[in-house]
């Protein structure tokens, strides 16, 4: 790696990757034991486990790049909300099962395109993590797309709920494609793609699946932002961190 500035940007980039999988994995794990049917319960747990595994890689590397001796656990459990860099969509509450699966699909689709690019990253450590994640992500998107199609093109009630889910989540999709100086630095260093460059492939996949699901894709281009820059999260993140970080905060320095 080159100079200090670059490492700062790289650290931010890795936090964004790791925080997305950390917070989404946490949300998905909230379903454990409460899903509509046993088979889905087990499948969702697999997804959450993959996401937690990816978190360990991304945040582990983030700590290494930062060079202050922080581990993946330190980063997950000892940062406050303003230091989190995940997109807003993943911190939203689960809602009903349909909303959870719609969010999963909207994220998986992005993740698949992103990881596909990162496999070719100039930074070997990142390419390796992407390589490993790509197989998990390919399965996730297949499964979540199937569920979105099944429920969208299912009963009258399931269709209505899935349309409500996409309408609710749509204003959070755009943030995944925003770019800033961190991204510019990653592009310049040949480490990661410009987020905006993922949009075309993403839209093609999302439009195909949602049309198969007989759902209308909203056309409003407005979107919320503030998660991936850390400028302004939703109120939900603080509550999530309150339970996630409870033990580490209450008993500092303990070994678990």
């Amino acid at each position: 790696m080159a100079g200090k500035t670059n490492d700062d940007a790289l650290f931010q980039f890795l936090l964004r990757m790791g925080d997305n999988s950390l917070i989404l994995g946490h949300r998905v794990s909230e379903w454990c034991g409460l899903s509509p049917v046993l088979e889905e319960d087990i499948a969702l747990a697999n997804t959450a486990l993959d996401l937690i595994g990816q978190t360990q890689f991304w945040l582990g590397l983030a700590g290494e790049v930062e060079g202050k001796g922080r581990t993946a656990d330190d980063l997950a459990f000892l940062r406050d909300a303003w230091d989190f860099r995940n997109v807003l969509m993943v911190e939203l509450p689960n809602g009903d099962f349909g909303q959870t699966m719609m969010r999963q699909f909207l994220y998986d689709a992005w993740s698949q395109v992103m990881v596909g690019r990162l496999i070719k990253s100039g930074d070997k450590r990142i390419a390796d993590i992407a390589e490993k994640a790509s197989k998990e992500v390919a399965y996730h998107v297949e499964r979540s797309a199937d569920t979105v199609v099944g429920l969208g093109d299912g009963s009258e009630e399931s269709h209505a709920r899935m349309q409500a889910a996409i309408d609710y989540l749509w204003p959070y999709v755009g943030e995944m494609f925003d770019g800033d100086e961190v991204d510019a630095a990653m592009v310049a260093a040949g480490i990661a793609p410009d987020p905006a460059s993922l949009r075309e492939e993403y839209d093609a996949l999302v439009n195909k699946v949602l049309s198969e699901a007989t759902l209308k894709v909203p056309t409003d281009v407005f979107h919320h932002k503030g998660g991936r820059t850390g400028y302004m999260h939703t109120e939900h993140l603080g509550h999530l961190l309150t339970s996630m970080q409870w033990l580490q905060r209450a008993y500092p320095g303990a070994t678990w």
Binding site: S29, G33, L38, I42, L49, I52, A72, D73, M244, L247
Partner: peptide, 25 residues
Amino acid sequence: ITRAPTLERKAILLAKVQDEAGHGL
């Protein structure tokens, strides 16, 4: 599960509780 103290403990506990769902199945 949402309060497990480390990422590894979270994964282990989730995998364990998932196994129990499998046993039920």
